[in-house]
Amino acid sequence: MFLGVVQSFFLAFVLLLRSSNNIGLRWFGASILATALIFLDVYVCYTGLIKYVLFLNDSTEALVLIIGPTLYLAIYCFLKREDVTFKKHWWHFVLPIGYFLSQIPFYLAPISVKYNAYIGAYYSKFPSAKIPESFNHGYHYIKDIFDWLVLVTFLFYTILSLKMVWEEKSRLTEIGVKNRSSKYIFTRNTVAVLFLLLVIIFMVYYSFDDDGGDHYLGIFHSCLAFLTTYVLLSESRFFEKSWVADKYETIGQSKSDLNLASIESYVDENKYFLRQDASLNDLASTLKVHPNHISRIINQGKHSNFNDFINQKRICFSQGKLVDPNFSNLTIEAIGALAGFKSKSAFYTAFKRHTETSPSAYIKSFSPKL
């Protein structure tokens, strides 16, 4: 369990420090940091080290209610491709903040209260300490339903996350994308883990009183910490041969095997241009060649760079959808997103550059004239 806690802290700090331009990874890192603090608390309780910091007993309970919201917001950023701010999504944190405020009397309670709470959970046969008669135990009303709050929170955010992944799957199927992006697969697996965690929490709460089964959750957390590290390292370019390749060195596929026709064939057949995360490095990694080699082929064959090459295909796709009656219920911005553009401004700029007209003017040109 201790190794899992250490690994979680390391992973959380890496994600929080190295993902300044990716809000989704920051929320994911915040979730991992919360779990690291929670299971550090569990570890010191199981080992008896809590006696040195008894005043911190049960101080991480509110963080348990943060795991669901932070994982959901990370998935939201990945799939909706929108940044999430606390100002806009504050309501997700009403429950954990409310629970924290309700437990302030316990946090400020005499050490004897903390001692009794600890031995009551782990050593019920030990004698309890004497508590001042004037002490108010009103906080127990909320504390007694903490397990139910955890289960309801995890169930709620599992359903929300599952709904979002299902909608993304339907969207990709609708536009004919066969190969799922790494981002989609990662979020789908995250939802699966969230559901599995919900099941394990329910089984532990059902089988044990108080905190008796937390070590099972700790084992699951440790395995998950190392598995997450493995997944993130697997996605890193560090292990790709192209990471240390010479400028025009190709990997796996020789220069003679790759040409403009084969590149276009892959991009068109797999609807690669519809992916918002489409990039020269990603395509090169998929085709197992150096990015500069693909760039040179496109430059020579199309007299344009990679971004223009991809945007041209996106514009052709969007032109068909803009005048298709089956897509008349979608806004211009939605069709732009469907075509792979990350923002409305990017879509309008690319559309005007390639067609010398705006999307709205293009639609009007196909409207019946009265």
Score class of each variant (00 low, 15 high):
F2R: 12
F9M: 08
F10S: 09
F10C: 08
R18S: 14
S19W: 03
N22S: 09
N22D: 14
W27L: 05
I32A: 07
L37R: 04
L40T: 14
L40K: 12
Y43I: 09
Y43E: 15
G48I: 11
L49P: 02
K51D: 12
N57S: 04
S59H: 09
V64D: 01
L79P: 11
E82R: 10
D83I: 01
W90K: 10
F93G: 10
Y99Q: 07
Q103G: 02
I104A: 04
A109T: 04
V113T: 03
A117F: 02
G120F: 00
A121F: 02
P132W: 03
H137T: 01
F146T: 04
L151R: 05
T153I: 01
F154I: 00
L155C: 05
I159K: 12
W166Y: 07
K169N: 10
L172N: 15
I175C: 05
S181D: 11
N189H: 08
A192G: 05
V193Y: 07
L198Q: 10
I201M: 05
M203Y: 08
Y205C: 00
S207T: 12
F208D: 00
G218D: 09
S222A: 15
L227M: 12
L227Y: 13
L233P: 13
E235T: 07
F238I: 11
V244M: 12
I251K: 13
I251D: 15
D268H: 14
E269N: 14
N270H: 12
F273W: 08
A278S: 14
T286H: 08
L287H: 10
V289N: 13
N307G: 02
N311P: 13
N311D: 10
C316E: 08
S328Y: 13
I332N: 04
G336F: 06
A337W: 05
L338Y: 01
F341L: 01
K344M: 00
F347K: 06
Y348N: 11
F351C: 07
H354T: 08
T355E: 14
T355G: 02
T355K: 15
T357I: 12
